[in-house]
Design a protein around this nucleic acid. Structure first.
Lengths: 347, 347
DNA sequence: ATTCATGATGCATTCGAATGCATTTTGTCA
DNA sequence: TGACAAAATGCATTCGAATGCATCATGAAT
C-alpha cells in the first residue's frame, strides 16, 4: 500500500501546469534555446532535420512562444489600439468589425478602447505607451498635443474620419464636404427652397465638415439664413432636431441631417408628430449609408461611405508606418457614393 | 568655435527617444531599481521622502512601467479577450460597449476578437495563451473541447448568453426560454391561433433555446404543427423568413422571430410585400430589446435583455475568477423584461 | 544607553525569447 | 584530399520590472 502511494506521488511532479518554454523544448530536443527560437523565427538558420525534431517536441509539449517575452526583447508586440468614441452610433460597429478583421488577417491583435468622455483619451494613451503597442487607429477625437505625443513616442498613428487641426498625422477620411455638396445640389435641382439642417455636435469633425459644406453650398445658391439645430448623432437627436426646426413655424421642405441615424429619427418624427409624408411633404437626407438606413421603412437618401476601402486603407497605412519608420504623413480622401433611397424628392 | 561644437554635441547623446526605464529613474533619483519598482507597486515599502523624490524624477522623465516586463515577471497582464461572433447583429455593439467600459473601469484592457467562421476560434485561443491573457469573456460559440482547454491552461472563462453542452464553465445568460414563453402566452391570451416562427440559425445557442421554448409552449397549448423557418438573425433574414412562411399559403396571424432584427425585417416585408397592417393583420414579436426595435416605425413587441446587469455580472465573475484561482463554475440567469411595443395585438 | 522590532533599501535573480558573435559542421570545388 | 565558404549551432547577453533575502537605518521601549 505504502509503495503504491509512493509511486503515485511523483506522477505529476513540478510540471504542474506550467507552460512549456523554449528551454523545455530545447532540453527535450537536445538542442539549445537559440535553436528553438530560430526554429520559430521567420528567417532562422536551422537544419531541416533539427527543425523537424524541434517542431515535433514543441507539438508534444504544446509549446507556444510567449508573446510578452517576444515583445519585450524585440520591441514589436503585434498589437495595435483602436480608439472609438461611441459604438451606439451605428456607423462604428461596421468600421470596427472591418478593422479587426483586416488587422487580424495581418497577424495583428486589436486592443479596443471605447471612449465616452473627452478626458479619457489621456488615460488611453498612457496605456498605449505602457503596453508598447505598435500603432493606433483612432476614430476618436485627439488634440494636436495628443497627436504630437505619438511623434515623440515614435508610435504610428492613423486617424479615421478626422484630420488634425494643425499637427501632422496620417489620416483616412470620407470626403464629407463633397458628399454633402452632392446632396444639396440634388435637392436644389429638384426645386427645394426651404432648407433646415440638423447638424452633429460641435466637437465632431465630420459633423462640422458636413454642416459647413451644406451651408456653403446653400449660400452659394443664395440661401443665407438656413436654420441649423444640433443633435448628437442619435435617433432621438434626430427626432428632437426636427421638432425644433418645425417649432420655428417656418415651412420646411428639405432637412439635411448630419448622419443617417438622425435622419431616421427625423423621418419618424415627421411622420408621427407632424403627419408628413416622406418625401412628398418633406425631403430628408442623411449621411453614412448604414444598414438601418436602407430598411424599407426609411430608405434614407444619403451618401454611403466606402467603409471597406477606407478601413483597408487605414490598416495598410498603419502597417506600412509600423514596418517603415519614416513614412511621411499622408491623407487619403475617399469619395462617398450617392444612395438615392426614397426619403427625398429628387429630380 | 571648436569648443562650442564640442559642447553642443553631447546635448542629445544616446538618449535618442528611448523610453525611460526604472533604471533611468533610479539612477537619476539616486536609488536602486527596486526602490522605483516599489514606489509604483501598490503595497511597496518606501519612505515618504524617497517616494516623493522618485515620483518627481519619474514625472520629469515621463517614466511609465513597461507592461510587458510587468506581465512577464508577474504573470498578470491585466488584459482579457472578448470574443464576439458578429458585430452586425445590432445586439452586440451595446454588449461590447458595456463590457469594455466596465473592464476599463477595473483597470483591465480588452483584446477584441471578432469571429466569423467557426474555425477561427482555435487561432484566437492560440493568441490567448501566447499573450498570457488573464481571462476571456466569450459571446461566441465554443466547443466543449475548447472550453476544456481553458481549464488546462488555468485561464478563467465566462460565457455570455450561451452555456456549454457538457463542459463546466461560468456563464451569464438572459433567460431566453422564460422570455419566449411569456411572449407566446401573451399572444395566446390575445387569441392568436395561427403561428409561424422565424428562428435563428441552428448553431446559435439562444436561437435554439428560443425556438424550442416557443414550440414547447405552443405544443402545450395544443398547437403542434407550427411552421418554422430559419434566418441568420439579420434584417434580410427576417424578410426572407416571412416570405417563406407566407409562401406556405397558410393564414398566419402571429410570427415569432428569433431576434429583433429579424422581427424588423419581417415587419417591413409584411407591410411592403403583403400589404399587411401591423399589428392588426399580423402580430410580430422579437427578442433582445435593441435600440432600433423601439424606433417608432417598428415598436417591436419583444423581451429586453438586461444588458447592463448582464455585462456587470460577466465582468464581476471574470475578475473574481482571475483574482481567486478556485472559484467554482457558476451560472447566472437573468430574466428579460417584456416590452409591449406595438407590433403585436395583445390583450 | 541598550535592545529589538519595524521599516526602508539594495542586491541578485527571475520571467522567456531574440540575437550578435564565436565555433563547429557540412558541403563544394579544385 | 585539402582548402574554404556557407550553413548550423551554441553561448552569453539583453529587454524591464518584480521580489526574496540580506542589510541597514529608524524609532520605541525599558
Amino acid at each position: 500500500m505504502l509503495d503504491e502511494d509512493a509511486m503515485d506521488q511523483p506522477v505529476k511532479p513540478t510540471t504542474l501546469a506550467r507552460r512549456a518554454t523554449s528551454y523545455d523544448v530545447a532540453r527535450k530536443a537536445g538542442v539549445s534555446q537559440s535553436a528553438v527560437s530560430r526554429c520559430f523565427a521567420p528567417g532562422g538558420s536551422i537544419a531541416p532535420a533539427t527543425r523537424k525534431r524541434i517542431e515535433k517536441v514543441a507539438a508534444e509539449l504544446g509549446y507556444r512562444p510567449n508573446a510578452l517575452a517576444q515583445g519585450l526583447i524585440s520591441g514589436r508586440t503585434n498589437m495595435v489600439a483602436v480608439l472609438i468614441s461611441s459604438l451606439t452610433n451605428l456607423y462604428y460597429p461596421e468600421v470596427l468589425e472591418e478593422l479587426t478583421r483586416r488587422l487580424t488577417e495581418r497577424d495583428t491583435r486589436v486592443l479596443l478602447f471605447s471612449l465616452r468622455a473627452e478626458g479619457e483619451v489621456d488615460e488611453v494613451l498612457d496605456q498605449v505607451w505602457r503596453h508598447s503597442l505598435d500603432g493606433v487607429i483612432s476614430a476618436a477625437r485627439l488634440s494636436d498635443a495628443q497627436i504630437q505625443l505619438f511623434e515623440d513616442h515614435r508610435v504610428p498613428l492613423v486617424l479615421y474620419n478626422r484630420v488634425p487641426a494643425k499637427a501632422r498625422a496620417a489620416s483616412v477620411c470620407c470626403d464629407s464636404a463633397a458628399g454633402e455638396v452632392e446632396l444639396v445640389e440634388r435637392l436644389l435641382a429638384a426645386g427645394h427652397r426651404d432648407f433646415g439642417i440638423i447638424a452633429g455636435p460641435e466637437d465632431s469633425y465630420v459633423g462640422e465638415e458636413r454642416r459647413r459644406a451644406a451651408l456653403d453650398r446653400l449660400a452659394a445658391a443664395g440661401f443665407n439664413d438656413v436654420p441649423v439645430v444640433r443633435g448628437d448623432f442619435s435617433y432621438s437627436g434626430g427626432r428632437e432636431g426636427l421638432r425644433q426646426l418645425m417649432a420655428g413655424g417656418l415651412s420646411l421642405n428639405a432637412v439635411i441631417c448630419g448622419n443617417d441615424q438622425m435622419a431616421i429619427g427625423a423621418i419618424d418624427c415627421a411622420r408621427e408628430a407632424f403627419k408628413l409624408k416622406i418625401p412628398d411633404d418633406l425631403s430628408i437626407v442623411g449621411f453614412d449609408g448604414t444598414a438601418p438606413a436602407s430598411w424599407s421603412s426609411y430608405r434614407v437618401t444619403s451618401i454611403r461611405q466606402p467603409v471597406r476601402r477606407m478601413t483597408e486603407a487605414a490598416v495598410s497605412m498603419l502597417i506600412e508606418r509600423i514596418e517603415n519608420e519614416n513614412t511621411s504623413a499622408e491623407r487619403r480622401l475617399f469619395a462617398g457614393e450617392f444612395v438615392r433611397g426614397a426619403s427625398a424628392r429628387l429630380a
